Each structure stands twice: as C-alpha cells, then as structure tokens.
Simulated scan of single mutants.
Amino acid sequence: MMTTLNNTHMPLVLIGGTLCNRRLWQPIVDQLALSAAICVELTGATTAEQVSQRLLSELPPRFLLAGFSLGAIVALQMIADAPERIAGLALLSVNPLADRPENATPRREAVRAAREQGLANWLSASLWPKYVAPSRLHDRELHAVICQMAEECGPDVLATQTEIAISRGDNREALAAATCPIIIINGLHDPICTPHHHRLAAESAPQATSVTLTQAGHFIVLEAPDEVAIPLRQWIQECLHATE
C-alpha cells in the first residue's frame, strides 16, 4: 500500500519496518520540506525479492529511497535489483545480513503468540523492551503510537513480514557497488539492528555517510525525529545536487 503525500518527478520513497505504517514517518516528513513522499507498507508478498519487484513495477522511473528496519532490508534488495532507478539510499536501523536458519522457528512461533495474545499485548511484553533506548521505556506516548501501528497492520501483515525477514538475503555486494549518495543511521541502544550490524553495512559502503544516535534505540525514526531529520535533509540535498 502506498500513500502519496505530494507529486514530483523525484519523490522520496519511505519503506517502514515490521508492523509499521505511515505514522512511522510523519514526524520526519513534516520536517524535511519535501515536494513529494511515498510511504510504502510491506504487504502482499513474502520475500524481499517479491516486494522489490512489485514496488519497482509501481514506482516512478527514478526516486530517492529510505528504509527502516525490515524496510531497509527491502531497500537493499531494490538497490541490488535496480541500482539505476535509485538516486539516493538511506538505511535506518539496518541489518544487512541474511537471517540465520535457526531463527525461522522462533519467528513463526512469535506470530502464533501475537495472534493468541493480541498484537498490543504481545508487542508490549516481547518487543517493546528491545524497541527503544532504556531512557524511553516509560514513554507512554511513544509506546501508544507503536502499538497503534501494530494493531492497524494486524496479525496477517505480521505473518507476511515475518516471512520476508526469514527469507532475506545478504545484499552487501550491491551496497558496495552503489554509486548514489548513501546514508546509514542507527541508534546506539539497538539490540535488534545492533551497532555491529551498522558497522557491517557502513564497511560495505565506505562511500556512505554513517551516523549513530547515541541516545536512541531501534525505533530511531520515532524516538529522535529531530536528530534523524538533520542528516536526512543533508542527504536529500546531496542526492538532488548529484542529479542536476
């Protein structure tokens, strides 16, 4: 599902993570003064390759691309599939590695638990402590937004997105070969897409700008939208200058 905020010849495509929708991006979109943005939700396919091909068939001929978490995995697949289409790449809270085979069973068991317990209850118990920096664990407003997105997406979307995570590949070679401006942003207190994963991505793309937010966890887009928006604005300007 795509929501177009405006129209332009060079939009910014925003791909959210697991159980995320356009609410994820709104605090940042409001600050970027974009002429156009397209918010993408990961539905309708069970592999990153399938999602990539579907999006590439629907999106404009050329665009800027930003992905968060699972969305960053899909963004890496898209840069592998069609580097000529992407004028700039932003990876937020990224793990560039293929998933380990032993993760498949617990991931699918988590989907079953989420259906039984209800998404908000399951997320609060199992994921919330991993989602944000320790200093934000008692942030009720942030917790409410993340749970609201999860409930709006629903358990079927979680099941589909889980299969994308399980089947993902390692696209670091494509990242290394990319010639467009790249920025990689992570939170220091992220146990999901860890500082180690961030370094692996940055080492694969020495041409990229690498930013670590020292007070944020996994959900950097909602935890620290002001801090994320600053380097993203600079990256957008670099991308647009490169296309002139």
Rank of each mutant, 00 (worst) to 15 (best):
S126R: 11
D156Y: 15
G17N: 02
A176H: 12
T212H: 01
H143N: 05
Q53V: 10
T160L: 10
I146Q: 00
I230N: 03
P231M: 01
L5E: 06
T212E: 09
S35M: 10
L59M: 14
Q148M: 14
K130A: 08
L89V: 08
A66M: 04
L32D: 00
P129I: 07
Y131N: 02
V211T: 07
L59R: 13
G44M: 05
L137P: 05
L32Y: 03
R62C: 06
W122I: 06
T105V: 12
T3W: 14
R100C: 10
L32P: 03
I192F: 02
L127V: 09
W122L: 00
P231Q: 05
A75M: 09
A98N: 03
D156E: 15
P231F: 08
S126E: 04
A165E: 11
N95V: 03
R168L: 11
L175H: 05
I184T: 06
H189Q: 04
A110F: 14
P195C: 06
Q117R: 03
L97G: 07
V221P: 04
H138T: 13
P129C: 10
D30A: 14
Q207Y: 14
E203M: 06
V145A: 07
P27M: 09
L5R: 02
A87I: 10
E244H: 14
D170P: 06
I166N: 06
I192D: 01
L19S: 03
A45K: 03
L97I: 07
Q207D: 10
N103K: 00
Q117E: 03
D170M: 09
L92P: 07
M2D: 14
E102W: 08
N186H: 01
L188W: 00
M78H: 07
V29A: 11
H197L: 00
P134S: 07
M10T: 12
